[in-house]
Simulated scan of single mutants.
Amino acid sequence: MLELRDRIAAIDRALQDEQEVEFPRRPDTPVRHSLDHRFDKTAPEVDAAPAPTPAQEKPNSFESLDSPSEKRYYDSIAAAYGLGILDEDEFIEYVVYDAFITNLRICPVHLTDSGHYYYVEHRSFLPHVPGVILRHGTDKQGKCLGVAHLPLTGANTFGVGDFEASPLSVKWEKMENTGFWTHMKYKLVHELDNGEERVFNWIRTRNNILDDQGDLVLVQEGKEELVFAEYLGKGLLKWKKRGRLRIREMKTFGETWELVVLLTWASVVELSRRRARVRRYSPTHLIGI
């Protein structure tokens, strides 16, 4: 084994000649590794690690300073399914308030928009009487814009028009529950002004805590990536304000499109609240089953 003096001399000569010096070692001496693994010599039989793909590379934080921030989904679990509202500029947003007993008052977020105030009158379990009446304005005295019949059995029907003044002028369309055990989806067929029929679905995306109605989205059947309306309830934190409703502006669908959305949404909400009242006051609920 070389003496310390000889090692120092060999290192001094190597530094002068810029050469690499290898000292002999015993066969049973383990290979010494540096504290930094990047300076360890890799055995020639070991393949080098593959270069990272563009997806695996870490983004440069300086490049993201000037880049526009991505729009996030509206606060809804619908985003987990690829749904949600991204282009906020194409929607009219409303705030939904509780009115007399089970009635609802729908007001636009922008208070200057005086033409989009609606009042929803709910009537429960009355024969031959509409279960939902949509009125213009903020109270029961407003003009009737449409009604919906919600019978105990059979399909639900809705129609746009003044049912109180001229009931024969109302054109009726159907909306039905597509599930057998659940009420997650309601299907409606609506005829546009150009005569084309399209199928839409109200889909429940989340059950709010201690609320009789969960969040909803309205999509076209087969094209669920485009959301036409979205309702977000307040859940446990509601007092007078029940939630927010957003409706996409679709001028190509005709002037009655917004009324159809409001009528069908109010029908789904009333059906859900009826089931909640039945569960709340059923005998099985009273005895704790």
Score class of each variant (00 low, 15 high):
L4V: 13
L4K: 15
A14F: 08
D17P: 00
E18T: 08
E18P: 00
Q19F: 08
P24V: 05
R25Y: 07
P30S: 10
R32C: 04
L35A: 05
D36P: 00
H37P: 10
K41C: 09
A43W: 13
A43G: 07
A49V: 03
A49L: 09
A49K: 08
P52D: 00
T53S: 15
P54I: 14
A55S: 09
Q56S: 10
E57D: 05
K58F: 12
P59W: 02
S67W: 03
S69M: 08
S69E: 09
E70L: 14
K71N: 05
Y73W: 14
I77M: 10
A78C: 13
A78K: 10
Y81I: 02
G82P: 01
I85E: 03
L86H: 14
E88C: 03
E90M: 14
F91Q: 04
I92D: 14
E93K: 08
Y97Q: 07
D98I: 08
F100C: 01
N103M: 04
R105G: 02
R105C: 05
R105N: 08
G115V: 07
Y117T: 00
E121Y: 06
H128G: 01
H128R: 10
V132N: 08
I133C: 06
I133Y: 03
L134K: 01
K140G: 15
Q141K: 10
Q141N: 11
K143V: 07
L145F: 02
L145A: 00
G146Y: 01
V147S: 04
H149T: 09
P151M: 02
L152S: 03
T153S: 13
G154D: 06
G161N: 06
F163C: 01
P167C: 08
V170G: 10
K174D: 13
M175R: 04
G179A: 13
F180V: 01
W181F: 15
T182C: 04
M184H: 12
Y186N: 06
Y186E: 03
L188G: 06
V189L: 06
H190E: 01
E197T: 11
R198M: 11
F200D: 02
F200P: 03
W202R: 02
I203K: 11
N208E: 15
I209E: 05
I209C: 02
L210F: 14
D211G: 08
D212N: 11
V217R: 04
L218V: 07
V219A: 04
Q220C: 12
Q220N: 01
E221K: 14
K223S: 15
E225G: 13
L226S: 13
V227F: 02
V227Q: 09
F228R: 05
G235W: 13
L236V: 14
L236N: 04
L237H: 11
K240T: 15
R242I: 15
R242K: 15
R246E: 02
I247L: 04
T252N: 10
T252Q: 13
G254Q: 08
T256R: 15
V261M: 06
L262P: 02
W265Y: 11
S267C: 10
E270G: 04
L271W: 00
R275Q: 11
V278H: 12
R279T: 06
R280T: 12
R280G: 07
Y281F: 13
Y281P: 00
Y281D: 10
S282K: 05
P283H: 05
H285S: 15
L286E: 09
L286H: 14
L286V: 05
